[in-house]
Design a binder for these strands. Structure first.
Length: 246
DNA sequence: CGTCTTTGACCCGCGC
DNA sequence: GCGCGGGTCAAAGACG
């Protein structure tokens, strides 16, 4: 299982994934930093929850539903320095939501209230709700299988220039779908956090205009620690504990 | 054998 | 009402 993530292309991301290089994605207001092979900084944008319609005709980001509204809502994105700790960064972003990562993610307008009973931002109702409502007809699926509109959840889009579609963000993801998208030769992949109580999803797709850029859209907030991050931090924490005794 | 990916089918919202 | 596009499900197969 673990090593399945090594396959390089569109397998679920996890510990063993080749993490880098990721490059900064030049954004219009900025002078594009020339990407170099040993640099792995990334540009992060925070997006507002997609307001259902309007979102599908943007040339740059049609695939992920990032319409003009969303793009306009993206404040000056930051180019992160090289050697940024991806796990920590994404963990932080994921846990804190769009409002709370000073200097990294912009503040976005308040989210619409959730309208889905079984789900919340923490996404902790995922597995239970699935068993409840999965009864429907065969193939079950659908944008709202409970008959409701899709819930509004915090969304973040991470643009990275990478040969790999999947960011190694420290979490484990299971792919549950892939769709060909209009105006793009690259399909969009749908992933769900494999943690049983976590309902965070992400969509991964390459830009139509620049296929070297991967857009990863996270939806929801993890309600569990990042395994990889904890793994990485544990020796430091131990050391801190030790030092704090004196 | 358990986990994950693939993939076709299905459902839903939206625009015309 | 119909067609399209997007999102999800779940069976089947692949893989370690």
């Amino acid at each position: 299982m673990e090593n399945q993530h090594l396959q390089g292309d569109e397998s679920s991301s996890s510990h063993a994934l080749p993490s880098f290089p990721y490059f900064a994605v030049p954004s219009p207001p900025y002078a594009p930093p020339p990407p170099s092979e040993d640099q792995h900084s990334t540009l992060i944008t925070a997006l507002q929850q997609q307001p259902s319609s309007s979102a599908c005709n943007n040339d740059d980001l049609p695939p992920l539903g990032l319409g003009p509204d969303q793009l306009a809502a993206v404040a000056a994105p930051m180019i992160l320095p090289p050697m940024v700790d991806w796990s920590a960064l994404l963990q932080q972003a994921s846990l804190m939501g769009p409002q709370l990562v000073p200097g990294l993610l912009q503040q976005v307008p308040p989210l619409e209230p959730l309208d889905q009973s079984g789900e919340n931002d923490g996404g902790d109702a995922g597995s239970s709700s699935s068993s409840k409502e999965k009864v429907v007809a065969k193939g079950g699926g659908g944008a709202g299988r409970s008959g409701k509109k899709k819930a509004s959840r915090p969304r973040f889009a991470f643009q990275t220039r990478s040969v790999n579609d999947i960011l190694d963000d420290g979490y484990r993801w299971r792919k549950y779908g892939q769709k060909a998208v209009k105006n793009s030769e690259h399909p969009r992949s749908y992933y769900r956090c494999t943690h049983h109580t976590c309902n965070v999803k992400k969509q991964v797709q390459r830009l139509a205009k620049d296929t070297s850029i991967v857009v990863t859209t996270y939806e929801g907030v993890h309600n569990h620690p990042c395994e990889k991050l904890m793994e990485a931090l544990s020796p430091i924490l131990k050391q801190l504990q030790f030092l704090s005794q004196f």
